[in-house]
């Protein structure tokens, strides 16, 4: 037990080194989000009417989309560990299963922090004008990290389960789908009815609304709910799914042979 912290830090150092030396992962973390942001703001921005300046509307969504793409890299990294000999060696050592996976997850959090900073930076250059106080900024980043946390645990779970790098890469389709069918890029009431039902009841929407609200200087409620309720819902989603997938990943990791 006393070794858990040191193990997690060792595995995080490893995860960060692997990520920072993986050209694919670095492009996904740094270049891709900026391109997506530019695309939404410059290409779609003029055509979409969201009630506010579109860049204010879309920036949080770009960050969550980037988190999804980054998670696909995590799934691939975990798959690489599982199919190479590395996991055998680690499992033959007195190191807990979660330690190995949490190294990837913490590395993913750090990576996404960098991505978040870059996207906010570029967005502000493009005219994004958040009205958040320092505390609200902190809360917004915290919310983003909670989201990154659960989606990375899901990615780790997928990485443990799949048997090929391609299958792990397929994860990115799923994570693309989630933000697109949410209020990340367009208001949900512009979606057809059946999609709206999904969009209103999936984790990305409350997370987006919360981050958007915090950056606008108030936790505005979506669809008339009281401020704070959306944030609570978002946190419940992220923590709940995070726990479920962390446990699932750990169990699958142990059961895998």
């Amino acid at each position: 037990m006393s070794h858990v912290l040191s193990d997690v830090s060792t595995m995080t150092t490893r995860g960060l080194r692997l990520v920072s030396r993986d050209a694919d992962a670095m492009i996904t973390a740094v270049v891709l989000p900026v391109i997506i942001l530019l695309m939404f703001v410059l290409v779609f921005g003029g055509a979409l009417d969201t009630g506010t300046e579109y860049i204010n509307y879309v920036t949080p969504g770009v960050i969550l989309l980037a988190a999804g793409f980054g998670a696909a890299n995590t799934a691939m990294a975990v798959e690489r560990d599982m199919s190479g000999g590395m996991v055998d060696r680690l499992r033959s050592m007195p190191v807990s299963s979660w330690t190995v996976l949490s190294g990837h997850v913490v590395a993913s959090l750090v990576k996404n922090l960098v991505t978040t900073a870059i996207v906010f930076g570029v967005s502000i250059l493009l005219g994004f004008r958040p009205a958040a106080t320092a505390l609200e900024w902190l809360a917004a980043v915290g919310m983003i990290l909670l989201f990154v946390g659960w989606i990375t645990w899901l990615a780790a779970f997928v990485g443990v389960l799949v048997r090929s790098p391609d299958a792990a890469g397929g994860f990115s389709f799923f994570v693309m789908f989630l933000p697109y069918v949410s209020s990340a890029f367009v208001p949900v009431d512009t979606l057809p009815g059946w999609l709206r039902g999904f969009a209103e009841h999936q984790p990305v929407t409350p997370v987006i609304e919360t981050v958007r609200g915090l950056l606008a200087g108030d936790v505005a409620g979506a669809g008339g709910t009281a401020p704070g309720d959306v944030a609570a819902l978002a946190i419940t989603w992220c923590v709940g799914l995070g726990l479920v997938f962390a446990v699932a990943a750990g169990v699958a990791f142990r059961a895998r042979r």
């Binding site: 490893r14 080194r17 993986d22 190479g84 000999g85 590395m86």
Partner: peptide, 10 residues
Amino acid sequence: GQQVAVDDKL
């Protein structure tokens, strides 16, 4: 193990 267990990027 029979499979080499080292990280190529380290």
